[in-house]
């Protein structure tokens, strides 16, 4: 009988999990705790900075994009902006949107900032760099030029860099608020002794990490661990009820 319940459950839930995240785990694991290349970046016409200048102040979330992107870049940034609006983390960070396309000029980046309505937001910095190849290499990010489409073939990548200039975590693809929270904690060196691998489409997982509290919060699977006790107690109550009420005494 229980098997049937499980299967019903599987069916009911399958639609919900159908559009689950499918990022490959391996790229996210590369170059972790390696120092990011200290590239010079241009933030405005007369402001030349380096990565160290920025990350010394606050940890960085680095988004690598290009302005002429017809694909993932825009939805990626929009989603990032939206998710960050709902994160009121006490942990400091700056979002650095950097172009990996050498053709992009500072003006293109400013235009992008305006389009997103972020030109006056102090948390966001839009910049270009001359040393994109070395920077990409230190991250393990390799966009490919597709001459047919005149577009870069690339992942939506968000890189976490802590104040010491080390890459602490990477997120590939458009990810939800929880993953973003985890990224923000990681750049602030908040240690969590474990994390789940992405791309595991498993129904009844026990716990999902909640970076807000730094703890895992119970997932659907947790119910299954509480269920035996609940069942046993209900059985106790119902048997007691039945024998004392339904059956004639003695």
């Amino acid at each position: 009988m229980f098997k049937n319940i499980v299967f019903t459950f599987v069916t009911i839930n399958s639609w919900f999990f159908a559009n689950a995240q499918t990022a490959s785990g391996i790229e996210e694991e590369t170059n972790i705790y390696e120092r990011i290349y200290n590239a010079p970046i241009r933030v405005s016409r007369n402001q030349q900075l380096t990565f160290t200048d920025l990350n010394n102040k606050k940890p960085l979330l680095l988004a690598l994009i290009f302005t002429k992107c017809a694909g993932v870049c825009n939805p990626f940034l929009l989603q990032l902006k939206e998710n960050l609006q709902f994160i009121n983390s006490d942990n400091p960070f700056t979002i650095l949107v950097l172009s990996f396309d050498p053709r992009d000029r500072l003006g293109d980046m400013n235009l992008l900032a305006q389009k997103l309505g972020l030109e006056n937001n102090k948390k966001w910095i839009f910049a270009v760099t001359d040393s994109i190849a070395l920077l990409n290499q230190s991250i393990g990010f390799y966009p490919r030029w597709d001459s047919v489409r005149s577009q870069y073939d690339h992942d939506a990548l968000l890189v976490g860099i802590n104040k010491e200039g080390y890459i602490t975590k990477k997120l590939i693809g458009i990810r939800d608020k929880l993953d973003l929270d985890l990224l923000i904690s990681s750049v602030n060196n908040i240690y969590s002794p474990t994390y789940r691998l992405p791309n595991k489409n498993i129904l009844f997982s026990c716990f999902n990490y909640d970076p807000k509290t730094g703890k895992n919060r119970p997932g659907l699977g947790w119910l299954f661990i509480a269920l035996p006790a609940v069942l046993a107690m209900s059985l106790l109550l119902s048997i007691s009820f039945i024998v004392h009420n339904k059956l004639p005494a003695e």
């Binding site: 098997k3 489409n201 498993i202 009844f204 026990c206 299954f224």
Partner: peptide, 20 residues
Amino acid sequence: IALFFAEYFSNGNFLNDALL
């Protein structure tokens, strides 16, 4: 046991969580 059987009979469509 139900979760074991569910995975056994699902031909790989249903996977369990190792921690659970």
